[in-house]
Amino acid sequence: MPRSRAKSPSPSSTLQRDAEMLNAAVSDLVRIYQFRDRDKICCYDISVTQCYALEALVEQGPCRSQTLAETLRLDKSTTTRVVDALVRKGYVKRSPDPVDARAVSLQVTASGRALYDRINAELIAQQVDLLRDLEPDVRAGATEILRRLAKAAQARFMSGVSVGSCAVVCGANADQGKSSS
């Protein structure tokens, strides 16, 4: 009696299944990290968004508010509120822009840098604990995959690709706003 051959999944169904599993894994990871970040960072009397702004200023150096807003993917008014809070707390200062005296440059203060270094060191220590039991090649592979996924997601975001029907709805809302003004 001939054996029936099991059908192998088509490449498109395999890709779909892999995408579903990746989506679930990334969602779990992001959710856990969001809570971790909130719990760890907020104990320093700054919000996660303020910490991201501090990190951006540490990594890219002094910049204008518009550049920071683009880096954080926030609108200008939200960025201003984030920066105002960091200035009040003494972690960021505003200075005249060296290129355009009418503009303002944002930069991290010494206490802001010290806070960033302390938070970053604690977060890295947590990563050490997570990676401790993994082989070096697995650690390197995981990091490379996350970098590639982040780069691909960034490229899609920057090209204006949105999620699902939101692009249609958001586009329609934007068109309505233009025609009514």
Rank of each mutant, 00 (worst) to 15 (best):
Q66I: 08
G90R: 03
L72N: 02
K93M: 09
D75A: 03
L72M: 08
L68D: 00
D97I: 05
V92R: 00
G90P: 07
E70I: 03
Q66C: 02
T71S: 10
D84C: 10
A85C: 09
T78A: 10
D100I: 06
L74C: 13
D84F: 04
D97W: 03
T67H: 05
K76D: 05
V83M: 05
V92H: 02
V87D: 09
V92A: 05
T80G: 05
S95Q: 10
V82S: 01
R88W: 05
L72V: 03
T67A: 13
Y91R: 07
S77Y: 06
L72F: 02
S95M: 12
Q66Y: 08
L74G: 02
D97P: 06
E70A: 12
D75G: 11
D100P: 03
R81L: 11
T80V: 07
Q66A: 13
A85S: 15
V92P: 01
Y91G: 02
K76R: 08
C63V: 04
P96T: 13
K76W: 05
L68H: 02
K93R: 15
E70D: 14
V87Y: 12
V99T: 14
R64H: 06
R88N: 13
D84K: 11
R64M: 07
G90S: 13
D100N: 15
L68W: 00
V82Y: 00
P98C: 09
R81K: 14
K76L: 15
D100T: 05
K89D: 05
R94W: 08
R94A: 08
R88I: 09
L68V: 00
R73L: 09
L72I: 03
P62W: 10
D75N: 12
V92K: 04
T78P: 00
C63Q: 12
T67P: 01
V99C: 04
A69I: 02
K93W: 03
S77N: 09
V83H: 00
P98G: 11
R73D: 11
P62S: 15
A69T: 04
K93P: 03
S77A: 08
L86T: 06
R64W: 01
A69N: 07
K76A: 11
T80R: 11
P98E: 14
D100K: 09
D97T: 05
S65I: 09
P62D: 15
Y91W: 11
K93S: 14
T80P: 00
V99G: 04
P98S: 12
T67W: 01
L86K: 01
Y91E: 04
R88A: 11
T71F: 07
V82D: 00
D75Q: 10
K89C: 06
T79R: 02
Q66T: 13
V99F: 12
D84S: 14
D75M: 03
V87W: 03
V83G: 02
D75W: 05
R81Q: 09
R64C: 12
P96W: 09
Y91F: 15
K89M: 13
K76H: 07
D75S: 06
V99S: 15
R94L: 10
L72Q: 05
S95A: 10
P62Q: 15
S95G: 01
R88K: 14
A69V: 05
